[in-house]
């Protein structure tokens, strides 16, 4: 059986509140807070990017896994904000954790599901016996255009998962992906900010794919919502994951531990993976977890996960995700946020 042998989360300490953004654009903060259930989001410092967060998240995953990084045979970084357009993030990560040179590396991009995409590939490489251990990271420092609805949610964070066949923290019992071509959200080459289809991103996009993947994997596994202790959905805002849970027959209690978005924002490729880390932090041996990501374009990857006894040994070898989310925070004003995110035009 292959599965997760270590996991790690990373969240920058900076936050900006919805009110602070709304104030600048003359928008109605209460409607964002109530309608989208967003309160604040994480913001990377100027010295943090997808690579640095991936490295720190991966170091934490390594601490929990307790393996020799030289035995990692594959490293995948899923992100839509790779610092280089050409030159991999994965090579920096592999080098920083000491996995080079006997390692396969690739950068992945699939809007918000590039993280689970890496997890899917890493898991299956381990399953096939091609590599002993594989590392997959979902990390993003995404940008929403100033004043756009996405600016209230586009956040920064990373989650890393090490896969192997021994020392399992969680077994992966089933995987399933649901994919169609869907122009709901995109960013053309050389463009700084993405564009999206507004309300079109809801029913035919997020909801159709997440329910498609969730129902598909439950069918294959012969399971129903009540069989899971926890469920983690992609969290582009607070409302969508709760609503899709309701549509599928999951309770708020099953969703709540991994529902980070109101205080974290949408960390894109890190979103559902970070929800999974927060869920593992509090899970008990034997707990079943359903993970369903969503990436515009569009697709959902789903995983049925069973937690093992080893969770109790490893969860406190690195900081818990809720602690990263709730402590050591610094609130930015829009000016500092705009500077950090390079939204201010400077002299050449």
């Amino acid at each position: 059986m292959a599965g997760i042998i270590g996991y790690g989360a990373y969240i920058p300490r900076n936050r900006i509140r919805v009110e602070e953004i709304a104030k600048v654009w003359g928008a109605d903060a209460p409607s964002f807070k109530k309608g989208l259930m967003l309160e604040e989001k994480s913001v990377p410092s100027p010295d943090q990017d997808t690579i640095t967060m991936a490295v720190e998240g991966s170091k934490r995953a390594l601490k929990r896994a307790g393996i020799d990084p030289r035995e990692i045979g594959a490293v995948y970084v899923g992100s839509e904000s790779h610092p280089y357009a050409v030159k991999p993030s994965g090579t920096v990560l592999a080098e920083a954790i000491g996995a080079t040179p006997d390692v396969h590396t690739a950068d992945l991009e699939f809007a918000c599901k590039a993280g689970t995409e890496g997890m899917f590939i890493a898991l299956n490489l381990v399953r096939s016996g091609a590599v002993k251990y594989a590392l997959a990271v979902g990390a993003d420092t995404s940008q929403g255009a100033p004043g756009d609805a996405l600016e209230y949610s586009a956040a920064a964070g990373a989650a890393a998962f090490l896969f192997g066949k021994e020392r399992l923290v969680a077994e992966v019992l089933e995987t399933y992906s649901y994919t169609t071509d869907m122009p709901d959200f995109w960013r053309r080459e050389y463009q700084y900010y993405p564009q999206h289809g507004g309300r079109f991103t809801g029913e035919p996009a997020y909801f159709a794919h997440v329910t498609g993947a969730a129902r598909g994997i439950m069918d294959r596994a012969g399971m129903k919502p009540a069989d899971f202790r926890y469920v983690v959905f992609h969290q582009p805002n607070g409302k969508f994951p709760l609503r899709v849970g309701e549509m599928l027959g999951f309770s708020k209690k099953q969703i709540e531990p991994g529902w980070l978005v109101s205080k974290l924002g949408n960390t894109y490729s890190g979103s559902s993976p970070l929800g999974l880390t927060a869920t593992l932090d509090i899970a008990a041996a034997g707990d079943m977890i359903l993970l369903v990501s969503y990436g515009s374009g569009a697709g959902s990857d789903s995983f049925v996960i069973r937690v093992t006894e080893r969770i109790d040994e490893v969860r406190d070898l690195a900081p818990r995700t809720r602690k990263l989310l709730d402590t050591n925070k610094v609130y930015l004003e829009y000016g500092a946020y705009a500077k950090y995110r390079r939204k201010i035009r400077k002299a050449e």
Partner: peptide, 20 residues
Amino acid sequence: LEFRKLSEEGEAGIIYYGYK
């Protein structure tokens, strides 16, 4: 020690990483 970006060679040059 944490892995961070130290500086960069302008907007188009390489990014310098390291420890802080």
